[in-house]
Design a binder for these strands. Structure first.
Lengths: 355, 355
DNA sequence: TTTTACCTTGGTAGCGCTATCAACAGCAAT
DNA sequence: ATTGCTGTTGATAGCGCTACCAAGGTAAAA
């Protein structure tokens, strides 16, 4: 009931005091609202003096632009649909942090949508359209779903694939050089003295899996080690599949002395499998993973792995999308490659073992 | 230059065709824009017949409300700051999914902000204020930071603590019954025949830690088992601390036959420690965790644990916050308790072992 | 000096929606 | 017939911001 007037004169006849507006700033700085708008949007054609005055007024009032009004007036409005489907929680977490941050910073709205494997791609596209989604952000494994890409493209939305092995001409892409990273890790195992190195591949439907396998093979090759196809197994990025593959590898007559798993979960499983068989890691078996997710440090010994800057990749992808939505010229698909790094921990640094 | 008119009469003189508006729907349904607005917002006082007409028109045009305009006109605007500080990635991920979903559904804006341990709470509050944050969402461990709560409260923002053991009178709280869950898990271990059950506590500065410890103690007590304080250790929810505690417990003269860890990461570490000492889990050592995060299934054997519905809790918290922001009457702190469940997997189901 | 060209600023008119209040039924009670 | 309702609808006026165009000033060119 009590109409409390917290120190500020009520503006309209609507409900009480919200934050200061361009008009307030304009009054204080003795310029027009329009000029304030220009300063806020860093329009180059504002005189230095005026800009300073306005900035002072802004600081004084603690003015913050109202996003709603801005996007309404500006006509611009960017909704990004983030589609995810059962990626590792650790990956998704980092991805979400990066993408929400960037989306907020750029005034875009992020809609997080879970995509069931079995769901119809057409229905999904229809749903996105219904939600007025302008752009779609695709973390793996969805970034490799060609049907989905085509479907979304047909619906006229911009897309960004993150961490795909096969950038589509229909979409932006942000990737690391998976092959180089896998090459690097394998080369390191070789440098440690290993000659029989087992490989656990990722899900065949993710293109990155093939790239990592190539990196592994190329490293062996360039070290002059004959490839033994029995040492190559294929999992699906889950812990359980990693366990199965590792057990199979460790049951071979000529057991590998090192195993390169295509992601951290499978590497963690490999360590578990080794322990289960009474092998010490890294003394009797060196292991390395890929991705540097939380799993990498939640095992003992901690995993040597390749780190993708997931949050940065998400940020970059959002940036590409927002730019595309606001500026038709930026709509031609771009492919951004970001740097990875090798994180050396304890899972592989045992005494070098010769086969 | 070519003013392309894509099939729809241009509305303003501004840039071309955006989606249909209330006016379009109103015209088609032969009612006033206001009535359309009422239907969209499910205002009860609209006649059945009218509602049907409008809904038909909406469907026909594929109308979707413009959020920006709505929040501008409604004067309502809700920004929720989600503060997180190094929680487990798995937890954060689920939390983010739940909270972004709910925030979008309720037309609120979510700002994700990382809070460094060392950062000044006052500066943080100032920053939140600067970003015009109306409400703050606090997942653990921040939900237990009393200083932070006071600070934010002083700044006049609404808060919600998630998974705290000590709901503050200053904030909403969404919790599970940690004590009951810990009781349940411990009771299960006892039922399996264990008499010496080790305990790995969580970080002392998180109130949930104490509750879990109480549940553990109470279960022992009600089973008539004498508490042996040497069996109680204290970690800090990290894998590494779990490893240390587990190694200590397993080095005791009278080794425990089961260990209850206060979260999954520490339970995973316990399994790793057991393997490291050549003990089989669950045959020689039963283990159970808490939270049912991704870690629970990324170890072998998989963890028996207590599941918190993290995403649901986040959703509920967001709901409480948004309601509070839009409706002053809903601002009195509420404490919502949601159900947990015990997830029985393989880490504890060995042959029952007697001490 | 006048003209042309900027460079900077201001005025006006909405963006799409909803709060508010006024208006008009239709019906019961006076 | 008049009054008073409840239930439903419409008209009006902005929310805070920016696109657009026009207007003033100053400097360079004629």
């Amino acid at each position: 009931m009590a109409e409390q007037d917290n120190g500020r004169a009520k503006r309209g006849q609507r409900r009480g005091a919200r934050g200061p507006t361009v008009a307030d700033v304009a009054r204080l700085a003795q310029v027009s609202p329009m000029t304030v708008s220009r300063v806020v949007n860093s329009d180059p054609k504002v005189h230095e003096t005026t800009r300073a005055k306005v900035e002072k007024a802004i600081a004084e009032l603690g003015y913050v632009p109202n996003l709603a009004a801005r996007s309404l007036a500006g006509g611009r409005q960017c909704r990004i649909g983030l589609l995810h489907s059962n990626p590792s929680a650790a990956y998704l977490s980092e991805f979400l942090v990066g993408s929400t941050e960037q989306a907020n910073a750029m005034g875009a709205q992020l809609l997080v949508e879970h995509f069931e494997e079995e769901a119809s791609r057409d229905e999904l596209a229809a749903k996105l359209l219904l939600h007025r989604v302008d752009a779609v952000l695709l973390p793996p494994p969805l970034s490799d779903d060609v049907l989905l890409l085509e479907c979304i493209n047909r619906a006229g939305m911009v897309m960004a694939q993150v961490a795909t092995g096969a950038p589509s001409p229909l979409a932006h892409a942000v990737t690391i050089d998976d092959e180089a990273a896998a090459f690097g890790l394998t080369a390191r195992l070789i440098a440690l003295g290993h000659k029989r190195i087992g490989f656990i591949g990722g899900a065949p439907n993710q293109t990155a899996s093939a790239l990592r396998r190539n990196g592994y093979r190329r490293a062996l090759e360039s070290a002059g080690i004959d490839a033994d196809r029995r040492l190559e197994t294929t999992g699906d990025f889950t812990f359980r599949s990693g366990m199965d593959c590792a057990l199979a590898l460790l049951a071979l007559d000529e057991r590998p002395s090192a195993i390169f798993a295509s992601n951290d979960d499978m590497a963690a499983a490999t360590i578990a499998a080794a322990h289960r068989m009474g092998l010490d890691v890294p003394r009797q078996l060196s292991v390395c993973g890929f991705d540097d997710t939380a799993s990498a440090t939640n095992v003992w010994p901690e995993l040597t792995t390749a780190r993708q800057p997931v949050a940065d990749m998400a940020r970059e992808a959002v940036r590409l999308l927002v730019d595309s939505v606001f500026d038709a010229k930026a709509r031609t698909p771009r492919h951004v490659r970001v740097d990875f790094s090798l994180v050396l921990r304890q899972s592989d640094t045992g005494v070098a073992v010769s086969a």
